[in-house]
Write a protein that binds this DNA or RNA. Sequence first.
DNA 1: GTCTATATACAGATAGAC
DNA 2: GTCTATCTGTATATAGAC
Lengths: 182, 182
Amino acid sequence: MSRPPLAREKVLDAYEAILITDGERAATMDAIARDAGVSKGGLLYHYESKEALETALIGRMTDLALADIDELAAAPDGPVAAFVRTSVMTGHPLDRAITATSKLAQAGNTAASDALRGIRDRWADMVRPHVRDETALQLVLLVSDGLYFNNALVTGVLPGPLPRGADLDALVELVVQATRDA
Amino acid sequence: MSRPPLAREKVLDAYEAILITDGERAATMDAIARDAGVSKGGLLYHYESKEALETALIGRMTDLALADIDELAAAPDGPVAAFVRTSVMTGHPLDRAITATSKLAQAGNTAASDALRGIRDRWADMVRPHVRDETALQLVLLVSDGLYFNNALVTGVLPGPLPRGADLDALVELVVQATRDA
DNA sequence: GTCTATATACAGATAGAC
DNA sequence: GTCTATCTGTATATAGAC
């Protein structure tokens, strides 16, 4: 079992980073190649087209998300709390992949939209047994969506208005209280 | 007091529609001109650059949002309920303008991001007196953000997974209950 | 496996006729 | 006020050397 080629991962990291900080329009093959430290030709050896790059990014997001769902289901403070809490972990690989994929989806990439909807359905299945009813489930999912959306709106590395630390703890507690299964 | 030129509004409507249904990448001057029923030269008579078009769209969104906030503050079932409920009115001019502006923001347009953040601050000021504390305020805002984000993810005219009718009523009620001022 | 050079297409914007 | 024709920059992708 061999590790994936390092250069491929470096390119994907660069692509992701540009999408997150500068948006879809800035993520050109030139810019990606520059940031990844390769030439455009080198990039196109690893990914034969822009679409191949998009597909790889979406695949990375899906893999990370599915692995994360297994972890959430076993979280010590409960899946709901863990799910909301981790929706705001901006620096982590999964959250970077989701934010980058969201930018693609907003730019009109339907494969990205479909993948995000698919992951959202898996989240729903994971949370459903732990909340009161479908309305409570919607609340949990929408708070998570809201956190991701605000993450994605923050261009560059500005801190943004998202709750952190004690504020985040309070929000998680409120969501858990409001949706807890009787 | 004269009405704004009809052609200008038609162009802005076409721009908005393409952003919503096909994403930022598809919103080229050619496509906008075609859908608005004018030539590219005609379009550029009304808006001298792509940036002028973006600025006009962001301005329309801001105007509609500020007017809407005044209405929400006077809503019969309370500002919180009205705010959450109207976050999912996908066909209305304000919501179309917000969704289109979100697409711009995701594509890297910082003016769009700044405008959306500004409106979000106004919403927060409007809702704050009617909820228990800052945590409850965050919950209300994040549910609204989540509804908008899901709207924006739905490309084309697919119905999407958003709550409607009785489901939306139940969600509104849950949010009001969970955040109501003591 | 990575590079330079180039082909092709399309974006935004200009010029000037009508 | 709206059009056609055209210019310029830049994006993706190809060809082929090293």
